[in-house]
């Protein structure tokens, strides 16, 4: 197998006193869609920010395209980021710019293209997400699903080698959900991208992912191809995939049992 595009080795990260990652190893291969799944609050978004170099780990390293993200100089990190697209949960569009200007923004910042060339490139990207006639709208006029599609067009604007999706399916109606699933799969195949999808929506994510990683309580608890995960008999994986209320992740918040607490009240 070829070398992975992203290699994460022994990653430790904590926020305040709570440990988010406690020694994570992960390989993400080029040209595939990798889903990173796990319960809420396990730091999936944090993982993307670590890969993008926005946060610094306590220990461990992240190699992207052969470069150690956290030892790069600022200018090199910014150069690397031009090759990374990221789709934020809220879309993160600049609210004082129109849809067109939002997508043109990275082009204007990083290239010296003429206005007419930028215009055609923006319209092509918008066409790819089906919104070429919405270029004049302001972000406040967009629905949540449309905002994410615009953000996807913006993430693609510089033709990156990879796109990271942060919870792309959360809070979407079934139709926009279908649109997003189709868009993520199509762009990955058409542009030969590497995609990382962070999500806890099991069905949609499994329908497009090639590889799946499940993290919980700071560790990778399962990793493998989609088929391997689907047929895994690990109790962790089964609880997560099947959505069982109780299992390795307990239903009750850890601590004294209710009997003990009631007894304390009596005393």
């Amino acid at each position: 197998m070829t070398q992975a595009l992203i290699q994460i080795r022994n990653l430790h990260f904590s926020r305040g006193r709570s440990k988010i990652f406690d020694g994570i190893d992960m390989d993400i291969h080029a040209g595939r869609i990798t889903a990173v799944m796990g319960p809420s609050g396990t730091g999936k978004t944090t993982l993307l920010k670590l890969i993008g170099g926005q946060l610094k780990p306590d220990a461990g390293e992240i190699m992207v395209d052969g470069l150690n993200v956290h030892q790069l100089k600022r200018a090199d990190l910014y150069k690397l980021r031009q090759k990374m697209g990221m789709l934020f949960q809220s879309g993160a569009l600049l609210t004082d710019l129109s849809v067109f200007e939002n997508i043109a923004y990275p082009l204007r910042e990083h290239t010296n293209l003429s206005d007419s060339l930028i215009r055609s490139m923006v319209l092509i990207k918008l066409q790819a997400v089906g919104l070429s006639s919405a270029h004049h709208l302001m972000p406040s006029e967009l629905s949540g699903g449309m905002a994410r599609r615009v953000a996807l067009a913006r993430a693609m604007a510089l033709d990156p080698m990879m796109i990271m999706y942060d919870e792309p399916f959360t809070g979407q109606d079934p139709i926009s959900l279908g649109v997003l699933v189709k868009l993520i799969r199509d762009t990955n195949n058409a542009l030969k991208l590497t995609s990382i999808v962070v999500s806890h929506d099991v069905d949609e994510t499994l329908s497009i992912a090639d590889d799946v990683k499940i993290i919980s309580q700071g560790k990778v608890v399962a990793a493998g191809t989609k088929e391997e995960i689907k047929h895994s008999d690990s109790p962790w994986v089964r609880q997560f995939i099947d959505g069982q209320a109780d299992g390795p992740v307990p239903f009750h918040y850890p601590g004294d049992t209710i009997e003990q607490q009631l007894l304390q009240d009596i005393r």
Partner: peptide, 17 residues
């Protein structure tokens, strides 16, 4: 608000400070 709506992070990831 730009921070809360991830616009600042978004700019960073577009390699804009």
């Amino acid at each position: 608000l730009m921070k809360a709506t991830e616009q600042l992070s978004g700019l960073e990831m577009m390699a804009v400070d």
